[in-house]
Amino acid sequence: MFLPDFDYHAPETLAEACDLVRDLGPSAKVLAGGTDLLIKLKHGLVTPTAVISLKALDELKTITHVPGRGVVIGARATHNDLVNSPLLHERFLSVSEAAHKLANNQVRNRGTVGGNLVNAIPSADLPPILIALDAWITLVGSNTSRTVPLHSFFTGPSCCVIDPVDEILTEIVLPDQQTTGSTYLKFALRRSGALSVTGVAVAVTMDGDTIVDSRICLGAVFPVPVRANDAEDLLRGKTWSDELLAEAGEAASCCALPITDIRGTAEYRLDLVRVLTKRALKRAITEGHV
């Protein structure tokens, strides 16, 4: 296997990077961890003549809590940076756990959160839990900066709202919130190095046994990560019980529109949504952010 020839740029500042993205236009690709981009290059799926590496932008690597904003995750943070972040362990262990379910250790050491999001594959493991936790992202262009709720970031398989000839995803923000529990359950056909057949993330806000609110996000069962609004509506304000969660599972599978592929049939995936939703809810309700 080989990579096509390209020029390599490693801008020293974000502004410089944004200018390069704008100036080089569609012939350039932004390189973060490379675990997706290099594979696409090897398969000939993209053939840029220039690669803009974010390698030098260390400011995009931090995970910090900013009062008033929430937990701010730099887009260049690797999956293992999430796995090992004491801040996330303390506030949203579910995000660390979701990151740990992704690929394998070596890939987690290179692959970045930003790359995972921009790559926008429907079975990605991070979007469901980040959406369940109401995350939003910042896109910076040469002259612009905008924030986008993550749930409206994805527009289709491998498609998102980022302007590829002007913008760079710089950060993911998990806002301070009332949620009392969250978790991501991944169903895959091997325990490591396998894409998810179905993934379900939930975040719940409990008041005693009452479900004040919940967010349920389904992965790999729709062209984009999708909220299970029907299930959320059904749960709102109710006292939780196994029966109620089972009903929510049924409702969630009505929100999915999976395809049949090499990893599983649509029929199987729908039923997995049901089972995983029910289990994820119980876990988040009874165990907190896990």
Binding site: N104, R190, R191, S192, G193, A194, L195, I262, R263
Partner: peptide, 10 residues
């Protein structure tokens, strides 16, 4: 990745 030989955790 899609021809899945078992890993150490399997």
């Amino acid at each position: 990745s899609e021809y899945r030989i078992p890993t150490a955790v399997d």
